[in-house]
Computed example of a mutant assay.
Amino acid sequence: MINATTSPEATASSPAARGGEGTTRDYFELLKPRVMSLVVFSGFAGLMAAPGHIHPLLGFTAILCIALASGAAGAINMWYERDLDSLMKRTKDRPLPAGRVAPDDALAMGLFLTACSVGLMGLAINWVAAGILAFASFFYVIIYTVGLKRYTPQNIVIGGAAGAFPPMIGWAAVTGDVSWASLTLFLIIFLWTPPHFWALALFSNEDYRRAGVPMLPVVAGERHTKWQMLAYTLVLAPVALLPTWLGTAGVVYLAFAAVLGALFILSAVRVMREDGASTNHKAARQMFGYSILYLFAIFAALIVDATARGL
C-alpha cells in the first residue's frame, strides 16, 4: 500500500503510471476549474478595487494569466499527488489516478502554461504582477505540494498563502506595486483558508487518514480542529473590515463583510457544538459550503462597492 512517504511515481503496472488517451474534459479537469473560479474571481476583485484604471483588454489579459497559472499549478499538483489521490474516495476518479491522462502529459501541460502565463503577464502588463504570479505558483507547487502537505498538519495554514496572492496580482496589474491595501486582501484569503479546508477535513477524515496526509483532524483530533476553526473565523471577521478602514472600500462593503463574518463565526460555533459521529458532520459540510459562498460574496461586495464609488 502506498503511504504519505511514497514517491509520487506510481507503480509501472498501475493505471496512473500508464496513462491513457485523455479527452479535452480530462485535461480541463486537471486545471481544477472549481478552484480556478475562486482564484479568478478574487484576482478580478483586486483589479477592480485598485486605484487607477486599466484598459479592458489588458485587464482581461491579466485575469487570463491568473487563470492559466492557477490551472497550471493545479495540474502539477495532481501530477505530484496522484499516488495520494488514488487512495482517497474523493479524488480516486481524477484523470491521473484513473489512468485517463499520462503523468508526463499533465506535468508538461502544467509547466508550459506556467511559463506562458508568467511571460505574458510580464510582457503585456508589468513585471511586478508577473513576479507575484510566478512566486504564487512556486509557493503552491514547491512549498505547499512538495514541502508541506505530506509532512505537517500546518500544511494548510502555511500553504494557504498560495491561494491568497490573486487579489494582490490583480491589484499590481493596475498599479504596478504592492500596498497595505492589497496585503489586506491577501490576509483575508490567508485567514479564510484554514477553516475552509479543515471543515472539509472533518468529514473527509478517513480519506486523509488512509492516504497518510497529516491534516489537523488526523493528528490532533476533531475537538482541537474545531477550536482552531473558530479561532480563525474570529480573527478573520474584523480583518475583513480593514479595506474600509484603509479606504479601499466603502460602507456597502463594510455592511456585507460584517454580516458575512458574523455568519461565518456562527457556522464555526455550530461545528463546535456538533457531534460529528452521530450527524455525519452535517454542520462541517454546511460550513464548508458556506465558506465558499463567503469568499465569493465578500469579493463580490468589494467589486460592487468599487463600481458604485467609480473606482
Rank of each mutant, 00 (worst) to 15 (best):
L216D: 08
L64A: 14
Y27S: 07
L242S: 06
L107A: 08
I298M: 13
F41P: 14
T184W: 00
T175I: 03
G59V: 01
F28M: 10
G276W: 12
Y151E: 11
A297C: 14
A255H: 13
Y151S: 06
T145A: 13
E29M: 10
L266H: 10
K92A: 11
E222Q: 11
P238S: 05
A201R: 03
M168C: 07
V141L: 15
I303P: 00
T184N: 05
L202M: 08
E206R: 07
F138I: 12
L202Y: 09
L230N: 04
R94H: 01
G99F: 04
I188Q: 04
L236A: 02
F186D: 03
W227E: 09
A249I: 03
N280E: 09
L183M: 15
M109L: 10
V218K: 03
L242T: 06
T91M: 06
L68I: 13
L187R: 08
R285H: 06
E274G: 14
A237E: 09
L111G: 14
P103K: 03
I265H: 09
L200F: 15
A240W: 02
G160H: 00
M48C: 05
G170F: 04
I169W: 07
V271G: 04
T248F: 06
R18Q: 14
A201W: 04
T91Y: 04
L84P: 07
L266C: 14
I188R: 09
T307I: 12
V178S: 01
G71R: 11
L31H: 15
I158V: 13
A102N: 04
K32Q: 11
G160W: 03
V128M: 15
